[in-house]
Design a binder for these strands. Structure first.
Lengths: 152, 152
DNA sequence: TAACAATACATGTACATACATGCAATTTTA
DNA sequence: TAAAATTGCATGTATGTACATGTATTGTTA
């Protein structure tokens, strides 16, 4: 499944290198999401659910309100509540009402969630590491170019 | 809405430059999709519908089977039929059965579709050009790094 | 302090995506 | 050439995404 963009979307001519770069970023993101979803499937997780679990783990406190989770997810979405719904149904996280601000819903990992996340992230590392062929030096360069693209 | 990844996902530490690059690609793709969808909204199009219309325009022949469209879309999807459904409802494309191979469904732009696509792509160019801050030289570099990431 | 505005989250709708399955047409092969 | 496998597309279900709207709580201000 390794292929150049030209093969991937059967296009040999692009209006400009910039136009090609835009398509290349979109295609690479799709490639990464697909690889991630395939890896997480055995744990019953999607890449967005995994993202939320990781954010909860990364947080020092044991609970986090929905808004703060939303700030940290990669793909901003207005319906975090529904992603959280599915994690609650699977008993990987639990919800409670905020005490200081009753509008807030606090979300925290359950023991089961912590366990599944540990297993899933170990597997993710094992799969992604060999799949992603990038030296640290190139990664730094890539990060800079992406920031440039977005206007930084 | 221009911001570095650290601000965008409120993360200051990453496990490695490669880990950061992965998140950066995903975030940049989300940024591009959002910008595209907002621009296309006034034409009643989503970025996937727009992608299909452009593929049809790019094709020399006046009709294309679903499989060949599928090969060319950026985000591979098993339900191209439903994206085409919505374009048919809006009368931007029309369907017909393949003559050589009756399993094939041929899709072609209508006059209305050609017109909407012309307007939408002009607007897209006007919006994307100033939004994307990348020199041709950097774009070439970015393309190479993305190919490297995917293992080419 | 009562009225108004803002905030945090939930929910509804339309569309997109991932994956499995089904069906008809075509190709392969025994 | 009949049976089996493959191909091309459609469809069903669960999930995710974008956007608008609703509701309860909190903050602001006249």
């Amino acid at each position: 499944m390794v292929m150049k963009l030209e093969e991937a979307i059967k296009s040999t001519t692009f209006k400009s290198p910039v136009q090609k770069a835009v398509l290349n970023v979109l295609y690479t993101a799709w490639w990464l999401r697909t690889l991630t979803n395939q890896t997480l499937k055995q744990y019953g997780l999607t890449h967005e659910q995994y993202n939320v679990l990781r954010i909860l783990r990364g947080n020092a406190a044991d609970a986090m309100c929905v808004k703060d989770i939303g700030i940290r997810v990669i793909e901003k979405s207005s319906n975090l509540p529904r992603i959280i719904d599915r994690l609650v149904i699977k008993k990987l996280v639990k919800r409670s009402q905020g005490f200081a601000d009753k509008r807030e819903t606090l979300v925290s990992l359950t023991q089961a969630g912590t366990k599944v996340l540990a297993e899933a992230s170990a597997e993710m590392e094992k799969v992604m590491q060999p799949a992603i062929q990038l030296s640290d030096k190139d990664a730094v360069l890539l990060n800079n170019l992406l920031e440039t693209l977005r206007g930084n």
